[in-house]
Computed example of a mutant assay.
Amino acid sequence: MATLDDLRAALAGHTVVDLTAAPPSRADRAVPPTGDREPTGDREPTGDREWERHAALAVPTSGSTGEAKAVLLSADALRASAELTHRRLGGPGTWLLALPTTHIAGVQVLVRSLVAGTEPGVMDLSPGFRATGFAAAARPVLAVPGRHYTALVPTQLARLVAADGPGLAALRRFDAVLIGGAATPPSLLARARGLGVNVVTTYGMSETAGGCVYDGVPLGGVRVRLDGGRVELAGPVLALGYRGGERFGEWFRTGDLGRLGPDGALEVLGRADDVIVTGGEKVPPVLVERVLTAQPGVLEVCVVGLPHPEWGQVVAAAVVPADPAAPPDPDGLREAVRAAVGRSAAPKSVAFLPRLPLRGPGKVDRTAVATALATALTTTPATAHHPQP
């Protein structure tokens, strides 16, 4: 876990903060992991390790697609990320830390505070994230003159919105609330913004010193391009490389798919290895999830591909109903997706679960969801498969 003093020394070049040295604790698992992306082909030879000496921070990737790696970030990249964030948000301010500092999201709250010259507030997460605890931690932060910021993951935002009490009241007073670590359902964003919360969605990873694209627009100096649908990033926030591995070149090739809107804004469509191929059609799960979470009676959704002997995979949806006693009609959910995304994207399997398995708040464990879906559909075949995708 990184401390303010550790990071102050690291930014000054006196030490390296290594967050990869110990196995994850319960607190580690409380933050959705970031990164675990693919480097570009533009890399330098690995024989000379001199560049590793420029690292100020070693932060782990999630290891969700293989063995976890240690991302090495320079002090310059960390500072650039903090300065560009403040420039985008309207100036330096006082931050509330509501994320553990075992991954880049929490670390950057402290780095931004150091760069701003302000003392951050810290929420005690040992009992878990609670709306009342957030309100208590926010109180002294909001009493400081100037601008106020915090960073959350989608599950934390959802809990504050659902509680509709002192936590939400405090959240409304922040000048910006950064949301990242996982895709945020549009319905949750719309509800939070409708309640007066200034939500700013962020996209980034350990390899880019955290979020580097805010509300679809890159931070100053950050560049985005697509190569075969894959998102690639460049700019002053890019990490040096992986410890014991390759040094990054100018561009970093992520594992995510995206598309650029008419205004140039980036829309992230999820990880490339999550795409479902059913009957030869490619279905990004995020497009289906957006439609389903907007339907009445739906609280949360995760869409995965389940094996099928004829079609390769079929689209399957794990749905957490808002009211377990009155779940939405599966056929109505399918029809909504069919109308909005297309016939091939309509879930052939729908199962209602009490909750989605997580690897951290807001980071759904898709492998566990697929297992839970297979089990649920075996015991409740009425919602299982239509004859064809």
Rank of each mutant, 00 (worst) to 15 (best):
N198F: 02
T201W: 10
G165E: 09
A169Y: 06
G194F: 08
L168P: 08
P186G: 15
T208S: 13
E207I: 03
A192D: 10
L188A: 11
L189H: 09
M205L: 15
V200L: 09
T201S: 15
P186T: 14
A163H: 15
G204F: 11
F174V: 07
G204C: 05
V177W: 03
G196S: 04
V177Q: 01
Y203V: 09
L171W: 10
P185W: 13
R173I: 09
A163V: 03
G196P: 00
T184G: 10
A190Y: 14
A169D: 15
M205F: 05
G194V: 07
T208Q: 02
S206P: 00
R172S: 07
R172M: 02
P166Y: 13
G181K: 03
A176D: 00
G204R: 04
A182S: 13
G165S: 12
G194R: 01
L178F: 10
G165F: 04
F174L: 07
G165I: 02
R191N: 00
A176C: 00
P185E: 14
T208M: 11
S206D: 03
V199N: 02
P166T: 12
L195A: 10
R193F: 13
I179A: 05
L171M: 12
V177E: 01
M205C: 11
L195Q: 05
T184R: 08
L178P: 15
A162S: 12
A182W: 05
T184W: 07
L178D: 10
I179Y: 08
I179Q: 03
R193N: 13
Y203N: 07
S187M: 12
A170Q: 12
V200C: 11
S187C: 13
R191D: 02
A182L: 05
Y203Q: 09
P166G: 04
T184Q: 08
